[in-house]
């Protein structure tokens, strides 16, 4: 029995490893997308947290450049001041909100009207509807960016690679009219013009105003908008894992104590 039990355990372990191996090849591995540049983000790993200054700069890039075409319908200005994000001060949040003109109404005359934004307002979208967005962008619809960092394989690495991936097309490649070559975009033909260039966004800190920094910062910002509770999750996770680990040891000892003398040749 003990011999076959050992065999059974070994075989079972092999099966468990096999299952783990299958799980380790996630379904999306099949999509042979372009190679992405992998960065060392402050938020990756089990203890990863966002870099506040980076998120603030990222918001600056988003607001100055991306927001001209891309909506961010899931975000409110108040989120910019909430813990675990860029954590702008309350006053800054009010100022940032009030810079936007929000459509409200109808008023007592039945008309819609514009007013300065409040922290509880959603980010104002650049176009009223998808049709208008298409019309203004040569037929292409700039996607909403709220959860973009979770909606693409590679997440922030993809966004960074895309923003830094513009370049000269290979000589043998046929481009459709109005498309631009991008090495990170699936199919390498993207409708979006190269959005970033050195110096186009002012930074309030002394971070060099380079395309590379803009791409990094806005990718980090988009990761935060996609996963605003990441810091809370990582912090709680540490506590829960330590608790469960100690609990597991205690349960193991309890099991051994209760089963003492019941397992083996000891009647």
């Amino acid at each position: 029995m003990s011999f076959s039990m050992t065999r059974m355990r070994a075989a079972g372990l092999a099966a468990a490893l096999g299952l783990a191996a299958v799980l380790a090849v996630p379904a999306q591995a099949a999509e042979h997308g372009p190679e992405l540049k992998e960065l060392d983000w402050s938020f990756s790993g089990p203890f990863g947290m966002y870099d506040r200054a980076q998120l603030q700069r990222g918001y600056q890039v988003y607001k100055t450049i991306c927001a001209n075409c891309h909506s961010m319908n899931l975000m409110s200005y108040r989120n910019l001041g909430e813990p675990g994000g860029p954590e702008f001060s309350e006053g800054d949040v009010k100022t940032l909100a009030s810079q936007a003109q929000v459509t409200d109404g109808p008023n007592d005359q039945g008309d819609m009207f514009k007013r300065p934004g409040r922290p509880s307002d959603r980010f104002v979208a650049p176009f009223a509807n998808p049709q208008m967005a298409r019309a203004a962008n040569g037929g292409a619809l700039p996607p909403d960016l709220s959860v973009m960092a979770k909606a693409r394989e590679g997440g922030p690495d993809y966004i960074y690679s895309l923003l830094t991936g513009y370049g000269e097309k290979p000589d043998d490649m046929q481009m459709a009219p109005g498309m631009h070559y991008n090495e990170a975009f699936p199919g390498h033909q993207i409708a979006m013009l190269p959005p970033l260039a050195d110096g186009v966004v002012p930074y309030t800190d002394d971070t060099p105003k380079t395309l590379d920094n803009y791409a990094k910062d806005v990718a980090a910002f988009l990761m935060w908008t996609a996963e605003p509770k990441l810091e809370e999750r990582h912090k709680l996770g540490t506590r829960v894992m330590v608790f469960l680990f100690v609990f597991a040891i205690i349960m193991y000892l309890a099991k051994k104590a209760v089963w003492k003398g019941k397992h083996h040749k000891a009647i």
Binding site: P46, R233, G237
Partner: peptide
């Protein structure tokens, strides 16, 4: 749940 909540899902 805490470290790879989307790992088993699809972007």
């Amino acid at each position: 749940v805490f470290y790879a909540p989307n790992y088993l899902g699809h972007p």
